[in-house]
């Protein structure tokens, strides 16, 4: 047992830069996942069998294969087919965003189905068209109920983002490995990276609680 953080000190700015790099693609992925997930969820509850089928197949594929495989396909395999180099940043957003959408769509679908059917009927009886009904009446109630599950998904995504290091994207994880190789000590940089992830997730959790409290004002 000989921990020595002093050797790491010069590398701290380099490691901290990773926070921004990670946050940049994680927040984009969350956004992509959330918007696409909402659309997929709406497809799943329509009466149109084609949309429903496509959304189900999508979910099945993205949930049924490893995320690391999807990431590598976007980074290594897609350029081979398209002749167009996907940057690590773009590959990461695509893999994490599209993957997250599959999970988010299931959460939102369950949330929509859990809203009392009477709400739809009340809106229909007033002559409210489908789109405003969904946006103003059904989805706000659904989101309130699924917020904890949704936060959970975002937290998972933040942590799992560490696997982008396999495509050489310079996130927190990758930086910890580089520092480790540089100073021939792995425990200190990995511990440091772990603390950063923990703090990020902690802040995200607090943010979730804040939003939840605000949504509960009608209770």
């Amino acid at each position: 047992m000989n921990l020595d953080f002093s050797q790491m000190v010069p590398y701290i700015p380099f490691m901290l830069e990773g926070i921004w790099v990670t946050l940049k693609f994680v927040s984009m992925s969350i956004l992509v996942g959330f918007i696409l997930g909402t659309i997929l969820a709406l497809c799943k509850i329509t009466k149109l069998p084609i949309l429903k089928g496509l959304a189900d197949i999508y979910t099945s594929i993205f949930r049924g294969t490893p995320l690391i495989l999807q990431l590598m396909i976007f980074y290594f395999a897609v350029p081979q087919l398209s002749g167009y180099d996907t940057s690590p940043f773009l590959s990461a957003i695509l893999a994490f965003g599209l993957n997250s959408a599959a999970y988010v769509s299931e959460i939102i679908r369950a949330g929509i189905l859990a809203v009392d059917k009477g709400q739809t009927e009340a809106a229909e009886a007033l002559g409210v068209p489908y789109k405003p009904m969904m946006i103003n009446i059904i989805l706000p109630q659904a989101f309130k109920n699924i917020l904890p599950a949704l936060m959970n998904e975002f937290i998972t995504l933040t942590k799992e983002s560490a696997i982008v290091s396999v495509i050489g994207y310079l996130d927190i994880m990758r930086r910890a490995q580089i520092v480790g190789a540089d100073i021939y000590r792995n425990f200190e940089p990995l511990l440091f990276a772990g603390v950063i992830y923990w703090i990020m997730v902690y802040l995200l959790t607090q943010l979730g609680k804040l939003v939840e409290r605000r949504l509960r004002h009608s209770d």
Binding site: D116, G118, Q119, E121, A122, A125, L126, G127, I137, S218
Partner: peptide, 17 residues
Amino acid sequence: RKHIGMVFQHFHLFPHM
């Protein structure tokens, strides 16, 4: 339906409004 109002047994007010 714009011309037909309806009142339900279980009210179905919009709870978030």
